[in-house]
Design a protein around this nucleic acid. Structure first.
Lengths: 362, 362
DNA sequence: ATGAAAGCGCTAACAT
DNA sequence: ATGTTAGCGCTTTCAT
């Protein structure tokens, strides 16, 4: 079923059909009716390929995320999709699974489909040819940023987030605070670790390297690392996690060890999936404001796409969204300092902002 | 940058370039080298629209899910995407948010892009024109099925799942078992309720309509419904949930009421996100075997796409995947029957199959 | 207000 | 082995 079939069926020319369908001003109203009716009856569906070939009116926007089975990225995808369709774009989602080759293929597919713009969470090992492919395409880096990519980025301020979280523990009296986080090849891993370190430096507290465990953002890694930390001669009194997945693993290790929080150990998680609040006691955490981040990324891309300038400014505008420190029930003064049981908190859902950072224009 | 530019640059014809790029057998090896080099240097990226216009070799497959911010559908998307790319297809994901109009637009976009096949979780209010648009397209219904769609479906056997769960509670001695589930306009809602009912009938236990609350699959609905149930003159001793979202809401209501499980109330959730097992005590639940379901749906679609038959059989093959009954710590005999504390279970991760159902060929 | 015709970038006969 | 040519379905001048 093509535009020509419709034309033939109606005994008119195919260009008239095209005009009728695109609501061209100088077209007979009656003809429009006839065409619309025929389209309906014959079940004609326009061919997007032909259209975008002729007039470069493609409306595809690509979103490449490391994984989507995770509440964080799932929600991101939903929000970005929403924002795209509200602006007349069609979003295409792909999962790179942190594999640079898969990432390359996805970027290639998007470029072949002449995507108008891309939002990408770059893998640490981003291929050189991928970066080349991305040249000149409206791009926004999401959640992570790669040095090779000269494009604006939107990410959570992990340094401040972990700084505030660590300070909270230090203030409670903890001196042996463990950190299980991601490797520093990811920008996020490096930043979060830096926050943890900085808090110690500022407070003049000695940092024990044995208390830092860096690895992949995988529950199993955290489970092993935490199990290991608990067996130390001088074990930590508090534990900080560097990602959502790592928090899950830590929780598992703690359950295996039969430890109770915050009695035996204080814990601050990362991310804030809905079940953290449901946990008993609620999990104190460094939350990532998903909605704000996704909105900011969408805005940043839309700004590039609708930019009046011929060459949209792809400057290194890095938007840093503040993390949210959510104080719940898994933190308390270390065992040896708690002499009054009454000091223990229960379900506290107070929330406060962890410092102030730059914010993108709405 | 087009194929013509490359040809001009090399002083050859554009068809030679095309052949070189597609590795045509009768092509000079040297020419191939030259072309590949020029492509690299000039940064040529093929135009997917032009290609699919000429030779209907589109490789797009659509996946339309109600929401993706949920672990269930997120994982599904990931698995389907994986299976697609392994078979040379490119997956495009869209979220309908259970809005029939959004659903229509997504199906239309997919049809316009000449998608080769679609996997869809139909909304209950599927539009007639959406069904018309889906005519003749390789289609698989996922997780839910709509009577208007004559296409194979893959879904979890919610009836058996809830039957087994209810029987478990009845065997423990519960006689007042509440069920908070989805409305019966969704096929899943109707089936799960049916399982709950059937278990009562088989055991000859009276069903109290006041103990059944049906509504949207929304945590807030469940929270209110459960709060209400607990205030009954003769409150339930056990609670069954009909979806993941509803389970979250129920947990919230129970926490608000300060109730402890399974001491004050037995609970069986639905779905099995990773944190159910981490909960203290572990949440007994009717699990949905995501991986199996997603694999089955992918297979069902791939079978249609690679079918040798001219007209692929779009018969009503409904694949029903068995639910998994996961026995953990939130179920116990009702209060009045438990006279020995020792009967209480802790973290039990034993798993068993809830009956046997048909299974698609691998 | 409508028809005729050109051309978007590519592939695939058909020539050479 | 390579060049020439004809479309794929559509939009968009340019005539009429």
């Amino acid at each position: 079923m093509t535009i020509k079939d419709i034309a033939e069926h109606l005994g008119i020319s195919h260009s008239t059909v095209s005009r009728a369908l695109s609501d061209h001003p100088y077209t007979n109203e009656q003809t429009k009716q006839n065409v619309r009716q025929a389209v309906e009856r014959l079940g004609y569906v326009p061919n997007a390929a032909a259209r975008s070939l002729r007039s470069d009116k493609g409306s595809l926007v690509g979103l490449i995320l490391p994984q989507i089975q995770n509440e964080l990225f799932g929600m991101t995808a939903e929000i970005v999709a929403h924002r795209c369709s509200k602006n007349g774009f069609q979003m295409m989602l792909a999962a790179s699974e942190d594999d640079p080759v898969a990432e390359y293929n996805q970027v290639l597919a998007l470029r072949e489909a002449r995507a108008r713009g891309i939002i990408l969470t770059p893998t640490p090992g981003l291929l050189e040819k991928t970066a080349a492919l991305l040249q000149g395409v409206p791009l926004v880096q999401y959640s992570r940023h790669h040095p090779r990519l000269a494009a604006p980025s939107v990410s959570v301020d992990g340094e401040r987030g972990l700084l505030v979280a660590t300070q909270h523990l230090l203030q409670l009296g903890h001196r042996r605070i463990a950190y299980v986080g991601m490797l520093t090849d990811r920008s996020t891993g490096a930043e979060r670790l830096a926050g943890y370190m900085k808090a110690h430096d500022r407070a003049g507290v000695r940092k024990d390297p044995a208390l830092r465990r860096l690895g992949p953002s995988d529950p199993d890694f955290a489970r092993a690392a935490v199990g290991d930390l608990l067996n130390l001669v001088d074990p930590p009194t508090a534990l900080l996690l560097g990602s959502n997945a790592l928090t899950v693993g830590a929780l598992r290790a703690l359950r295996d060890a039969g430890l109770e929080m915050p009695r035996d150990l204080s814990l601050i998680g990362f991310g804030d999936p809905s079940w953290y609040a449901l946990w008993n006691p609620g999990i104190t955490t460094v939350g990532t404001p998903l909605v704000e981040m996704a909105e900011a990324a969408s805005s940043a891309l839309m700004r590039q796409l609708t930019s009046l300038a011929e060459v949209p400014e792809r400057g290194n505008a890095h938007f840093s969204i503040d993390a949210t420190f959510v104080l719940r029930g898994t933190t308390a003064p270390p065992h040896r300092l708690r002499n009054r049981r009454s000091a223990r908190r229960t379900h506290d859902t107070r929330t406060r902002r962890a410092g102030s950072g730059s914010r993108p224009a709405p």
